[in-house]
Amino acid sequence: MADLSSENDTLIRYREDDPVDHAAVTVDSFLDQSSASAVRVEPGDDARELIPHLERLALVEVNFPAFGDGRGYSSARLLREAGYKGELRAVGDVLVDQVAYMRRCGFDAFDPDAPLSESDLETALSRWPEVYQSAADARTPIWSKRHA
């Protein structure tokens, strides 16, 4: 099977491991078959259905058909809360102005419809010196620093 990532110049990953080498299947087909290790979560899917099977998942793609549909942020975060350690990739209408929030919700890879410029991405991800909430990333919230 082809290594999709090598042909994919829009993919950005913040992980050390190698990308999964096969295409993601739908949540329904994933739940029906045992072999797939990559799944694609659509906005209307209940990502919690994946939780009993996290051990065999290496890639969860969360699709954003339109950037304004924010269900994928919750899907990502609840998977991380449930202990998912594999790749969590935001795909679709992913714009530079959303990536910082996506990182906070646990996404560690992006495969946007339109390529993101590296410098824009750098700017966006370094924009916020602090954060007000604890989320799915490792950042220390302001309230924790205040009472350290």
Binding site: F67, G68, D69, G70, Y73, S74, R77, Q98, A100, Y101, M102, R104, C105, W128, V131, Y132, Q133, A135, I142, W143
Partner: peptide, 14 residues
Amino acid sequence: RQWSSFHPEFSYLP
């Protein structure tokens, strides 16, 4: 106010 400011999960609500 602080909790809801730049909330990463709830910035693209319905």
